[in-house]
């Protein structure tokens, strides 16, 4: 261990067998996270486990801190205190370079909108994580097109995101999230900007494709019908994970 977890967090966990691994075979776990934005408390002692291959819905009213928790789990935000471990490694102690590397190789992201680069074509957008990971342009684009075909949007490959419909754009985003065969996909209201029908289609394809690749999904949503695609749910209320039920 070159890095050690914060002393406070270590002492609040009684008898951890090994501070680097999470009991119960969790792939990704949050331990007692606290995070405040100025006077606003976003997370107050939030703990959560994500297991390999499961689809976990994070539910809760708006402002409850569910998106903040997702961002902490993904290593995008750093909590004020507490730890996030991924495969036994402490995400909160990693450098930006290491966390960036995780994002492009082990994690995938699907957000409500705006995560596609408007200057690039859809195929180039999907190929982006591969290219950032050093894959050659031709190979990356080939893989990207396969994914677009799999998500039934091969026609948009050479269009820019601005020229596609919302549903198509989200499928492109799903393709981009899965193209590196990540172990965890973080999805924040992935259907939030879509109507019911398109939202259902995107969720069906997303969850099916994620299960195929064996990726775990952390799905933030306030819609029960979207959460119904999950294997289990956790509710975030007032910055705390209210409940966590294993399916």
């Amino acid at each position: 261990m070159t890095t050690s977890p914060p002393a406070a967090s270590a002492s609040t966990h009684p008898a951890p067998a090994d501070p680097g691994t999470t009991p119960g075979g969790a792939l990704l776990a949050a331990h007692d996270l606290h995070l405040a934005f100025g006077p606003t408390t976003a997370l107050a002692s939030a703990s959560l486990e994500v297991h390999p291959g499961e689809v976990l819905a994070l539910m809760g009213p708006s402002g409850s801190g569910k998106s903040t928790l997702l961002h902490c789990l993904a290593g995008i935000l750093r909590p004020d205190s507490g730890r996030v471990t991924y495969g036994g490694r402490d995400l909160t102690a990693m450098s930006d370079v290491e966390r960036s590397a995780l994002r492009r190789s082990e994690f995938g992201f699907v957000f409500q909108f705006g995560q596609l680069v408007p200057e690039l074509t859809c195929a180039e957008n999907v190929a982006l994580p591969l290219r950032l990971a050093g894959v050659g342009r031709r190979d990356a684009l080939g893989t990207a097109r396969e994914w677009l075909t799999r998500l039934e949007v091969p026609d948009v490959a050479d269009k820019r995101p601005g020229q596609t419909s919302g549903g198509q754009g989200q499928r492109v985003a799903v393709a981009r999230a899965l193209v590196t065969r990540p172990r965890v996909v973080f999805a924040d209201e992935p259907t939030g900007a879509l109507d019911s029908l398109n939202g259902e289609r995107v969720m069906q394809m997303f969850v099916a494709a994620a299960r195929d690749t064996g990726a775990a999904v952390v799905l933030v949503t306030h819609e029960a019908r979207v959460a119904a695609y999950s294997d289990r749910e956790a509710v975030v209320r007032d910055g705390r994970v209210r409940e966590q039920v294993r399916a």
Partner: peptide, 16 residues
């Protein structure tokens, strides 16, 4: 800046 933020999301580190 917005474009670069999108790149950061998919795993570009600060240097990249």
């Amino acid at each position: 800046d917005r474009r670069l933020a999108a790149l950061r999301l998919v795993g570009a580190d600060v240097g990249t």
